[in-house]
């Protein structure tokens, strides 16, 4: 059972990494606006005229 001594800190570190990633996303403004980007994702590629 002594694996707990490794697994628990590892799990907490992973969790911490996820939080850090989220904090980075927030700080870089990715969550500032949530309404327009969904449209942008659909439209990003300019449509090519069919020959």
């Amino acid at each position: 059972m002594s694996v707990l001594y490794i697994a628990l800190p590892a799990a907490l570190l992973l969790g911490g990494a996820a939080v850090a990633a989220f904090v980075w996303a927030v700080r870089s403004g990715q969550l500032d606006e949530l309404e327009t980007p969904p449209f942008r994702a659909v439209f990003e590629d300019p449509p090519r005229p069919r020959e």
Binding site: V19, V23, V26, G29, L31
Partner: peptide
């Protein structure tokens, strides 16, 4: 908004 989101995440 950002401050509150960070707090919520933690």
């Amino acid at each position: 908004n950002r401050r509150q989101l960070v707090q919520l995440a933690i």
